[in-house]
Nucleic acid binder design. Structure first.
Length: 216
DNA sequence: GCGACAG
DNA sequence: ATCTTGTCGC
């Protein structure tokens, strides 16, 4: 009943997260990665329209394979901790337009590095049953030590004595990214994957490609 | 009660 | 997220 629609009240949304969090799988559960997808969500018309773009790249070559874009009326406000209820509907619409689903998603936002351990990446992963990783540009919760300045350096992101993710330097001397598992992948593999997708810039090539599509 | 707060 | 040009630095 509650899990069938996205038009929920904030209170219902929190309840749904607490219910679905049990379905998150933190182990590597996939055959092989050949199609890796980047997702970007933007807004138009003063925020009244949500625009989602998905770009699928080959892995590990990172060459473009296919892409899709979708626009939907915005139906949920931005509330820290409830981001997925605002962005996932449009992402699912774009996903349905792809010829073939990707093997994994690199999401803009947190995975389990979330108050209820169920951020955007977890929600998209569990809902589609496709592996996913949360790649956020800034922190939502958790604390961490100083991150080594060299590319590849990282420190655990901790909340309540629990490791919920990693703060990873994807480019020397540049602000680090907040990595956390979304679904069906381990944190160690998530870190390796993000590093494999950042040969030159701070953000993964997948995310950059999706951002370009969403812009023009 | 006072901050913090993914995009 | 979005509104927006030039500017500092590797």
């Amino acid at each position: 009943m509650l899990s069938h629609g996205w038009n929920l009240s904030p209170t219902e949304a929190v309840a749904l997260q607490n219910s679905l969090r049990r379905q998150v799988v933190g182990r590597n559960c996939y055959a092989e990665l050949q199609r890796i997808a980047g997702v970007d969500v933007g807004f138009e018309a003063h925020g009244s329209i949500t625009r989602a773009a998905i770009v699928v790249l080959s892995y590990p070559q990172l060459q473009p394979l296919e892409q899709a874009i979708a626009r939907l009326p915005t139906s949920f406000p931005y509330i820290p901790g409830l981001l997925s209820f605002r962005e996932v509907p449009a992402i699912l619409q774009a996903l349905s337009k792809l010829q073939q689903p990707p093997d994994i998603f690199l999401c803009d936002g947190q995975g389990i590095a979330h108050p209820r351990r169920f951020g955007l990446a977890c929600h998209l992963g569990v809902y589609t049953d496709i592996p996913s990783v949360g790649v956020a540009k800034t922190r939502l919760i958790g604390s961490h030590a100083t991150v080594p300045a060299e590319k590849g350096g990282w420190v655990p992101l901790i909340d309540k004595d629990e490791t919920i993710g990693a703060v990873l330097r994807t480019r020397s001397g540049v602000k680090p990214l907040y990595i956390s598992i979304g679904h069906k992948i381990s944190l160690e593999r998530s870190i390796e994957l993000v590093l494999a997708c950042t040969p030159r810039y701070k953000l993964p090539e997948t995310t950059r490609a999706a951002h370009r599509l969403a812009s023009g």
